[in-house]
Structure formats: structure tokens, C-alpha cells
């Protein structure tokens, strides 16, 4: 089977710091892949490079067999790479409906009917349980609901690869359980790349785990293998509470 995403020697320098240091990474279609690592390990920089928010200093990114290294972010989104932000960045002054309508109307660009947008928005909002809040201003939603809205917007892009950057950060335990269910459901139709600090969530969800440290991949494997890996324990799990 052809990998959905590969990076070859992907690097990014900030001044003298090598935030991402020649990373070779492969992601198979249908996977749920978790990326873990201590703060400053380069996880967010790495997914920012994949999504095109920042340009690499060197290296290549291949998505679905095509080199996308030079493509601007919005074209990568159109090709199926969706990114949900670590810091919630929904459009606070727009309604939840409008927030979701933005990705929906773009994926529908062939059809001109207003009904299609409406149906698409409501089905996406129903999937994440926000349908009854459609006409609230996004900024007025609770924090947990804003995070859900962020994911809804990612989903509405109908991505092939959905990148979730610390989606459970700041959520209550009950909300996290729902979230895990949601990600499992998403994974039926999309490949998921998940940056996550919450280890129980990672262990429940991930098919495979990639561990970053100091801009490089330290280890990669199934949750069990990673749990047993001595180097990982030293670098990351050992220091985590």
C-alpha cells in the first residue's frame, strides 16, 4: 500500500535552532497516528510544515504520491490536508453556523444551491453535537464547545488527512471521553495525525506512536512498544508526571 504522507529529510531552522531536524516520516492511509514528545520537541513545527503554514528550510513532503513541498497552505487544504489549531482560533465574531459554512461552501464549490450549504453545515454540526448551538456566536460558546467547533470545521473540509494539534487540551474529563469517540468515528473516513500530551488518550486512540525529541524522531511503534521503550521513558515518560 502507498503511504498517504511521507517526509524526507524535513528540516526547519529558527535562527540557530533546528526546530525540526531531518525528519523522515511515513504515514499509512487509515491510521490514527499520535505524535508525542516533550515541550519544544518540534511537534507543532513539524505538523505546521506538513500543513504548509511554514516553509521548510530543507527536505521534501510527499502527499498521496505527489511532492507538495512548494505548495501554499490553501492548496494543500484543497488536496485534503486539514489542520485544526492548537490555540482555538474559531471566528469568534461569527456564528457557529458561519464558521462551519466557510469550509462547507468551499468543498461544495460546484453546486450553487443554498440548500446544499445548509444541509452540509447542519450535518457536520450534528456529527459533533453542536447543531442546537448553530446560531450562537462562536466567541460565546464554552471553551469545550469552541474546541469541538474547531474540529467540526476540520471535518467539514472532508479531509483525507486531519491534523489535530492538542485537541483535548483544557477539556474536562467527560468531554475528553466524547472526544475520543469522535476521533474514532473520524478515523473511519480519514487518516488522523494527532499531537497529544494526554497519555491515556494517546494509548486509547493511536494505532502507532511517533516520539519527537529535540527536533528528531526518537522512536516509533505501537503503543505497547513505545511504552516499553527505554529511551522514550528516559526522554519523555520518565519526566512526565
Amino acid at each position: 500500500m502507498m503511504p498517504l504522507l511521507t517526509t524526507k529529510g524535513l528540516s526547519r531552522n529558527f535562527g540557530g535552532l533546528r526546530a525540526v531536524d531531518s525528519v523522515d516520516f511515513t504515514l499509512m492511509p487509515g491510521e490514527i497516528r499520535a505524535v508525542i514528545g516533550p515541550n519544544g520537541a518540534g511537534k507543532t513545527t513539524f505538523v505546521s510544515l506538513v500543513s504548509g503554514r511554514i516553509q521548510p528550510s530543507s527536505g521534501a513532503i510527499v502527499f498521496d504520491g505527489a511532492d507538495i513541498t512548494g505548495l501554499p497552505a490553501y492548496i494543500r487544504v484543497r488536496q485534503g490536508i486539514a489542520y485544526t489549531f492548537q490555540i482555538t482560533s474559531v471566528f469568534a465574531n461569527l456564528s457557529a453556523y458561519d464558521n462551519v459554512a466557510l469550509p462547507v461552501q468551499r468543498t461544495l464549490s460546484d453546486s450553487r444551491s443554498k440548500g446544499a450549504v445548509k444541509a452540509g453545515v447542519m450535518s457536520a454540526l450534528e456529527r459533533t453535537g453542536l447543531a442546537d448551538r448553530a446560531h450562537m456566536q462562536a466567541g460565546q460558546l464554552s471553551y469545550g464547545h469552541q474546541r469541538l467547533l474547531e474540529v467540526t470545521m476540520g471535518l467539514a473540509l472532508k479531509p483525507r488527512l486531519l491534523i489535530l494539534d492538542e485537541p483535548t487540551q483544557g477539556l474536562a474529563d467527560s468531554e475528553i471521553d466524547n472526544f475520543v469517540e469522535l476521533v474514532r468515528e473520524i478515523a473511519r473516513s480519514a487518516t488522523v495525525l494527532l499531537i497529544e500530551h494526554n497519555m491515556p488518550v494517546v494509548m486509547q486512540l493511536a494505532d502507532r506512536i511517533t516520539v519527537f525529541n529535540a527536533g528528531k524522531i526518537l522512536a516509533e511503534g505501537t503503543p505497547e512498544a513505545i511504552r516499553e521503550n527505554a529511551a522514550v521513558q528516559e526522554a519523555y515518560l520518565g519526566t512526565a508526571p
Partner: peptide, 24 residues
């Protein structure tokens, strides 16, 4: 219109609008 919605989105947060696949 849909175009108007995109314009407002650019005003509110251009970076986010790009990440929804729009050529801002």
C-alpha cells in the same frame, strides 16, 4: 453571498481562512 462570508472571515482571521483552503 458566500463570497461575502469569505471576505468577513479574512477580516476576522486571515491565517485561519487560508487553512480552510481559501486563496486569501
Amino acid at each position: 453571498s458566500r463570497y461575502g462570508r469569505v471576505l468577513v472571515a479574512i477580516r476576522e482571521n486571515e491565517e485561519r481562512t487560508k487553512m480552510l483552503g481559501y486563496d486569501t
